[in-house]
Design a protein around this nucleic acid. Sequence first.
DNA 1: ACCTGAACACCGTTCAAGT
DNA 2: ACCTGAACACCGTTCAAGT
Lengths: 206, 206
Amino acid sequence: MANYHHGDLRNTLITIAIELLADEGVHGLSLRKIAQRAGVSHNAPYMHFADKEAVLAAIAEHGFQQLATQVKGAIAQAEDSTRQQLIVASRTYVDFAIHHPHHVQVMFRPMDVTQYPTLAEASQASLNQLFEIVRSGQVKGELAAGDTHCMTKAVWAMMHGVAMISIAYGAEAGSTGKTAIEDQVSVFVSFLLDGLAMGDRIVDSD
Amino acid sequence: MANYHHGDLRNTLITIAIELLADEGVHGLSLRKIAQRAGVSHNAPYMHFADKEAVLAAIAEHGFQQLATQVKGAIAQAEDSTRQQLIVASRTYVDFAIHHPHHVQVMFRPMDVTQYPTLAEASQASLNQLFEIVRSGQVKGELAAGDTHCMTKAVWAMMHGVAMISIAYGAEAGSTGKTAIEDQVSVFVSFLLDGLAMGDRIVDSD
DNA sequence: ACCTGAACACCGTTCAAGT
DNA sequence: ACCTGAACACCGTTCAAGT
């Protein structure tokens, strides 16, 4: 029986929680099970987390870090064009969602993010990767000028939509009938980039 | 104390469940509370639902019907151009999500949809509205030719992404700083439609 | 500071029983 | 067919107590 007077119980609990989440989904995730798997009493977690919500926040935070790492790795290996960078980021985003559906569900559960500043940071850092690609694309002239935040959010919304739909309808990695979902999101982002390339727009223009 | 030997307990339970969901979120939704508010014993619901999951499925189904009704009403009043129809549908979709965040969360929770055929129908019917707009847009020549399903899913993913992001970050109706979210999704869909208007694409074209 | 055991109110679900 | 009451195993959370 491990003795956790070393300060790593917190991380142990998070690791176990993420495993349990992957195995049994949000529904099957309980503080008591986490504690049991860690070999501590059922309320030892309260030494490190205010409540279950705080554990979920920590899980979400870890998810955002993992996602950011994967996206970073993928775009580092990809072609240098803005279009390819954004496409690869999208594929990675959707891939992450398909492989960790329960984790993503926790990451995007409505919660008071102001309560968990480190979670807010991790989430923001993840989005900043996209922002940087878009910004540098504008600098290089590969993307039209215009509100960088707005363009970033458009691309984000597109990949996020595909990701959430895939999760909701239980998509397997690599297939939705004919076309792999990762290919679909590529096409969609391409469409969107073509639209963005046409420059600024006003809502009701025609 | 109402006597429910009339067959409407099922609907009563669903109505109460949706109220409870709006008030307290998924977390606060329990079969026992629903039964209590309906004035029946805590396991009367099991006469009408196999388990809690089945209640959630019924809630989701009702949500899709409501969403479809609202979208139908909105596009009926809107301008007849394909672009305006899709923009109005998107605004309505996002509006619904912002006003019923918990309901939407239940609607798009991962679940075995094959287990609940009427839910699958309602969900499909909702999506079919979009499909019909895209299809007729292609017929009228207002949209480029191409895979109708694919184009529909692109538009759907965009509005869904904005909706889910809005919910996750607790957006209020009508504001995200400078721009109302409903205006944002309009702009994003416009971008996308411009891209779609450029015709068919191959994934790796450049 | 860190962990435990007992206790509380609340769950979902099952089952025997009543009409 | 429709509903109830008792019972079970499981929760999150609190608190007094131990080291």
